[in-house]
Every structure is written in C-alpha cells, then in structure tokens.
C-alpha cells in the first residue's frame, strides 16, 4: 500500500517517532518572548534548521 495523498506543509514540523521526539534547539515564539528583540530568531527556517530528530525524549 502506498500513501494516496500528497504531502504538504513544513516537512520540519515537530513530531514524535519511535526513536523519540524532535525538540528544537530554539523556537521562534520562545525566542521572541525570551530575547525581546535581542538576537531573536527571525525565520521559521532558521528554527527548524536546529531540530534534532534522534535520541530525543518521547
């Protein structure tokens, strides 16, 4: 069986798999709140570049 649908959306969106959950090293919303204009992460892509997918907690 193959997927009968088309994958859309951000492929780096956080998810959990059998090996654990992706935990971003930072997150746009958190960065805004925490840095209040000081070196805030400015793009979704930047945040997702730092996502780790292995050996993270479930």
């Amino acid at each position: 069986m193959s997927a009968p649908f088309t994958l859309i959306g951000d492929p780096a969106a956080e998810a959990c798999g059998p090996d654990g959950c992706a935990i971003p090293a930072t997150h746009p919303a958190l960065s805004e709140a925490q840095t209040a204009g000081i070196d805030a992460v400015t793009s979704e892509a930047t945040a997702h570049d730092s996502v780790s997918n292995s050996n993270e907690p479930r």
Binding site: F5, T6, L7, I8, G9, D10, A12, A13, E14, A15
Partner: peptide
C-alpha cells in the same frame, strides 16, 4: 480529505 498529508505540529 484523503488527498493531503500533513506531518507534525504545523502552524
């Protein structure tokens, strides 16, 4: 709707 797959906690 059986047409599109969306993975993860998207916005």
């Amino acid at each position: 709707d059986g047409k599109y797959g969306v993975s993860g906690a998207q916005e």
